[in-house]
């Protein structure tokens, strides 16, 4: 398992691996928001938590089609399916490496972008906490979407269509926690619900993803 994680991380950091693409996308989306809604700092301050959450979600989505498609094309998935490692574990590891290379950098970059959007000072801690708790769920759910569409040519757009509705609860609770925090309210309740969703998806989604992947590899 560690070997797979090590390899995936190494691949992400090598040239052409796509590490940082998600981060750059997040940055650009966030920078574009003031251009589209105007530079009033009060307005930006109000929408900052939501914009940052949506940006993070889209950045995660963007990098999902690399999660399995490359391994499918070069035959690695076939060979992994015959390896002693269960597919459930392999997919969990792949989701973990996706989170480490996409979700985690987003969490770390969010406060900086929060500054640019004039996020209320109270909100930073809540924003980081909600992103740190929520982005793993985005990766795990995304792995399911990737497994569903891996055998389909040009499945990227279809995957977005399938994955985005599944992201709704995570987005609602995550952004709600960040927004309440930024308004100076207590965001503990949505944060706990968010943690529940994340833990639930981490525990259960790999089984669905592996079942689906076995069907597509057939």
């Amino acid at each position: 398992m560690i070997a797979l994680l090590h390899r995936d991380l190494m691949l992400a950091f090598r040239a052409g691996g796509g590490f940082g693409l998600g981060l750059a996308f997040f940055l650009i989306v966030t920078v574009l928001v003031p251009f589209s809604v105007g530079p009033q700092s009060e307005l930006l301050s109000t929408i900052a938590p939501g914009v940052l959450w949506l940006g993070a979600l889209l950045a995660c989505l963007l990098s999902l089609d690399r999660l399995l498609a490359l391994d499918f094309e070069d035959g690695t998935l076939d060979l992994l399916a015959t390896a002693p490692l269960p597919l459930e574990a392999a997919l969990s590891i792949k989701a973990l490496s996706h989170w480490l290379t996409t979700g985690l950098p987003l969490v770390l970059a969010a406060p900086v972008l929060g500054l640019m959007l004039n996020l209320a000072p109270d909100g930073y801690l809540w924003l980081i906490a909600s992103l740190a708790l929520g982005t793993p769920a985005l990766s795990v759910i995304g792995a399911f979407g990737a497994a569903l569409t891996v055998g389909i040519k040009r499945g990227g757009l279809l995957m977005s269509l399938l994955v985005l509705p599944l992201y709704v609860p995570t987005l609602i609770f995550g952004a709600e926690a960040a927004r309440r925090g930024a308004m100076g309210l207590d965001g503990t309740t949505p944060l706990i619900l968010l943690a529940g969703i994340t833990l639930g998806t981490i525990a259960l989604m790999p089984f669905a993803s592996a079942a689906v992947l076995r069907m597509t590899l057939r």
């Binding site: 709704v168 619900l193 669905a208």
Partner: peptide, 23 residues
């Protein structure tokens, strides 16, 4: 594939329903 999507989607649809009420 669609059957599994339907099962998983149902769970998330229920989750979304409660999330939306809360939100």
């Amino acid at each position: 594939l669609t059957s599994v999507l339907c099962l998983v989607g149902s769970v998330f649809a229920v989750l979304s329903r409660y999330a939306v009420k809360f939100w």
